[in-house]
Computed example of a mutant assay.
Amino acid sequence: MAGPWRALRRRVLTPGVSNTKLEVRGFHEKDAAARDLLETVGRSFLEGYAYAAEARTPEEPEERLEQVPRRFRGFAYEGAAMGFAVRDGLPLGRGGWTTRFLAGPAARHSYMAYVGVGWAMARVPRFRWSRLELGDPLLRWLALDGYGFHQAYFRTEKYVREQYREPAFPWPGGDHAWYADHAIDQGVGRAMWFVGGADQAVVADLVDAFAAERRPDLYSGAGLAATYAGAADEGELRAFRDRVGEHLPHVAQGSAFAATARLEAGLADEHTALATRVFCGMSPEEARELCDRTRPATAAEVPDEPGVPSYEVWRRRITAAFVTGAEVSP
Rank of each mutant, 00 (worst) to 15 (best):
A252W: 04
D217L: 01
E62V: 02
G223R: 05
V328N: 03
S255F: 06
E270H: 06
L274S: 03
A225D: 08
S255R: 01
F240Q: 04
D181H: 15
A85M: 12
L248W: 12
Y111R: 12
P296T: 01
E162K: 14
G173L: 08
Y179C: 13
G89D: 05
R288I: 01
D292N: 13
F101G: 04
S310G: 10
A258T: 07
F194Q: 06
P172C: 07
A50T: 08
T298M: 11
L218W: 10
F169P: 14
V124F: 08
A50Y: 11
A143L: 12
K30A: 07
A107Y: 04
L92G: 00
R128Y: 06
E59G: 15
A33I: 02
A297G: 15
G189M: 12
G42H: 03
T98D: 04
C280Q: 07
Y111D: 02
A2G: 10
G16Y: 01
V124T: 08
R165W: 08
C291Y: 02
T276V: 03
G197M: 10
D205R: 15
G307L: 07
H28Q: 13
E23P: 05
D208P: 07
R71F: 08
F240R: 01
Y164V: 15
R10D: 13
R214M: 07
P330K: 05
A222S: 12
A201H: 10
G95S: 14
P249L: 11
A259W: 03
P306T: 09
R243W: 11
L224V: 06
P91S: 09
A107F: 08
A103C: 14
H250D: 14
D199G: 06
W141E: 12
P306C: 06
R288E: 14
D205T: 02
Y311C: 00
G48N: 09
H176N: 11
M282T: 06
R73L: 00
A265R: 11
G197F: 05
R238V: 15
R161A: 10
A229P: 00
G230V: 05
G118Q: 04
G118Y: 14
V202G: 10
P61D: 05
E289H: 02
P296N: 08
Y49Q: 08
A32Y: 02
G146D: 15
Y111P: 04
E54P: 00
